[in-house]
Design a binder for these strands. Sequence first.
DNA 1: TTGTAAGCGTTATCAA
DNA 2: TTGATAACGCTTACAA
Lengths: 330, 330
Amino acid sequence: MGNKRLTVREIAEIANVSIATVSRVSRGTGQVSPETRERVLKVIEEHGYRPSQMGRALAEQRHGSVAIVFPGLAGPYFSEVIQGFEFEALEAGASVHIVGTHGRAAADEDVLAMSARVDGIAVHGGTIQEETLRRLAAEVPVVVLAGQPLEGIPAVRADNSRVAELTRHLLLDHGYRRLTFVGNPDGSPDVTERWEAFKQGHREARVPAPKNPVRIGMQQSDGVIAAGELLDGRRPPGAIVCANDETALGVLIGALGRGLRVPEDVAITGFDDVAMSSLVQPGLTTIRQPIRELGAVTARLLLSGVGNPGALMNTVLTTELVLRGSCGCR
Amino acid sequence: MGNKRLTVREIAEIANVSIATVSRVSRGTGQVSPETRERVLKVIEEHGYRPSQMGRALAEQRHGSVAIVFPGLAGPYFSEVIQGFEFEALEAGASVHIVGTHGRAAADEDVLAMSARVDGIAVHGGTIQEETLRRLAAEVPVVVLAGQPLEGIPAVRADNSRVAELTRHLLLDHGYRRLTFVGNPDGSPDVTERWEAFKQGHREARVPAPKNPVRIGMQQSDGVIAAGELLDGRRPPGAIVCANDETALGVLIGALGRGLRVPEDVAITGFDDVAMSSLVQPGLTTIRQPIRELGAVTARLLLSGVGNPGALMNTVLTTELVLRGSCGCR
DNA sequence: TTGTAAGCGTTATCAA
DNA sequence: TTGATAACGCTTACAA
């Protein structure tokens, strides 16, 4: 392994041409006579020559790779965002660095350091501080994913306000009282907006909203734990509005595990519409956002040049209310 | 954004020293007088100078990054492997490329192309063909993660044979008959070994093993679907041994959703011991493998030089049977 | 202790 | 159509 790689110069020597010609042939640019091209191509083939990425990067002044930064990587949401992002990036010939900060103390530093190795960075909302984001944007093109645009930094996100519609549905169509919101508004812009929309929905329905959300993480296991706190108490809520499907599924599992009936004993809703949500019994009522598309649009924006005049600054993808059994429908 | 970056030469000029001195100061090598260091450091600080990764890579002849290749990224298993891997890599100053092949047709090509941009690649079992793996190893150091070592390519994996112990536990301690294995042995080396161990356990217990496994994917949603096929039939199995916790949790959710009791109506076991497994009702009996450690060990091996004499070729991490309620214990 | 200069492997501009 | 040759930004002998 690691057989010393051949360089342009060596290939040139073997093929009896100049390095310029080798370069032209290998990248298919410029004019080369058919015979020469043939000869060089053969040598390239025979020796399995691949131009060095390092040399190329330096000459072209571009890394040929982009990064996407997340708070964590667990769960189907992130996986799908990445799929959309990765697909577009590879399409454009750029490789992808994925960074999960996982609450690391040096996260902001790490992301800043990453700016020296890529042509652009997509940052998921709720991962690094605003100040860091600003400094980052001074170094490389940046796009915010699932967050607010900020001083020349464009954002791509989903329409979280639809949670208001969901909330009205629970309050008015089903007549539930005592709704609880599960999720940490300080954790990410998405959750902030969903919590706001939850309160907005209450206002529109003229029902007083709860003062505080139940602050937990975004994973299934967090939902299970929350279910314990919410459902073992004396006055469980009529409906639980979760910040995402993962936690909603956790709450659902917790509820079923306690022998409770959903939605008779408690209604549960989520956000995302991941695969599991249509498979569980009862099906999870949720808000569908185009997760893959979110990643894809972000990648395209990042790769098409962020500073461009006329570039989109605030792309909001539409969402859709999906009614299933867990809210009481059907 | 994208303010033209300063180069060593410019910093050198401003600080009134040579580029060599700037380099020495910025990387902290060689001898520099305190005053000079001070002065240069100040200029570096003031102008926010960061050495170009491209220039550095070319000069040092190393990319300063490694890659890890997975079939997919969904689920807590991958997330934790990555955390272990990423932590070690960052510790060593290398950034991490994560590649999810997601069943892409061009996956093998993509991985091969990646070899031009990194100093080493860790490949999870079941992602690319053996032939591709061999060609890859001819280009860069390679470590197989959760798979068999192959002609000079070292592997890091967990002891899957413990599934035999679990199987005996179900057959002999609990007296279940008609066990079913859920998972696709052709999908990954891990599952191959677990399926083999499942049959081995039957042999040791002198109970005939089922001829075929129920071939499904490794995600929770796959488990839910499998639950439908398995539990709606006329003769549901006494116990379902799943290839991993995710599918086991899916089966469990499917069973509970059908109003079945676990383990009374059907026992369920998994593999991994992810967070959810200890939280569900009943707790999931499973085999714990040190997932994070798996990623960390792989990274260390990759970064410490794979071809070295005396390098470990086959690291097998121990696993542990964890008995909870879903098998009938307690 | 500091500086000069030779790479590192490409791409791309001119000439020929 | 080809070939010299100058960048690209850094590290690192070797000299001073």
